[in-house]
């Protein structure tokens, strides 16, 4: 069961690597949300308490339904339908995705410290792959909304690593983590909305008004005179 879930997770993030349309990426995120929720419930079935139940269901609801809904709502209001010409072309990013998948499986299998008991290597490699996918999306995609999706995938990956010891975490902390991720993405959504209204584009590539890199020529600037 766990292996199938981790494979499915890997496939969805591969899709994310390759997809150029934001709508598809959101669907992938929905899929990941459901998969993770089920994995959490399945994994902790041994000692199912009310708390773990609520956490499992709430993670499905939040990551599977509410957040994607919010993202689509923002998608419609801001006219950024397509993720056009990111830094790394879609073909090459897919290729990198496969490489990352290989790397994370390699790391998961021979990082054989005592994770065997808590996290099956398959799930651990999927989690690592999700984290890399999240990072990659944030770094290479230009549109703000794709960066939010990247962040969400990153959180999913981290959540996946935490699956194993989910039951040991007290209820409040687990719910707190869930709530934080939700509010985080929610806030990013509002900001994309504001950015769209202020900049009438959501292309983070053109966000470089705040910089220090104008290398003022040391020789001619006025201050240099009075430094001597």
């Amino acid at each position: 069961m766990i292996n199938t879930i981790s494979i499915l997770l890997a496939i969805t993030s591969l899709f994310l690597f390759g997809s150029s349309r934001v709508r598809i990426s959101i669907r992938m995120v929905i899929l990941q949300g459901f998969l993770l929720g089920i994995a959490f419930l399945y994994y902790n079935q041994a000692h199912l308490t009310i708390g773990t139940w609520i956490i499992g269901v709430s993670s499905i609801v939040l990551k599977g339904i509410v957040l994607p809904w919010l993202l689509t709502f923002v998608l419609h209001r801001s006219r950024a339908k397509l993720e056009i010409e990111p830094y790394v072309g879609f073909g090459t990013s897919l290729f990198i995705g496969v490489l990352l998948l290989g790397f994370s499986t390699y790391v998961a299998w021979n990082l054989a410290i005592n994770t065997a008991r808590t996290i099956p290597p398959a799930l651990f490699s999927a989690a690592l792959f999700l984290i890399f996918c999240g990072m990659f999306l944030i770094v290479t995609r230009k549109k703000a909304i794709t960066q939010t999706i990247g962040y969400l995938v990153l959180e999913n990956g981290v959540f996946a690593t935490g699956l194993g010891i989910g039951h040991e975490f007290p209820f409040i902390v687990e719910m707190g983590v869930m709530l934080d991720i939700f509010v985080g993405v929610f806030l990013m959504g509002i900001m994309i909305f504001r950015i769209d209204r202020a900049f009438d584009h959501t292309d983070t590539h053109r966000f470089n008004e705040l910089l220090d890199s104008i290398a003022t020529e040391p020789a001619d600037s006025a201050e240099m005179e009075n430094i001597q």
């Binding site: 910089l211 104008i214 290398a215």
Partner: peptide
């Protein structure tokens, strides 16, 4: 010293990525 330091200014170029 000023010229050497100014070389490193590109570190803060504004791109989030």
């Amino acid at each position: 010293v000023a010229r050497v330091l100014l070389l490193f200014r590109i570190l803060q170029h504004g791109h989030v990525h």
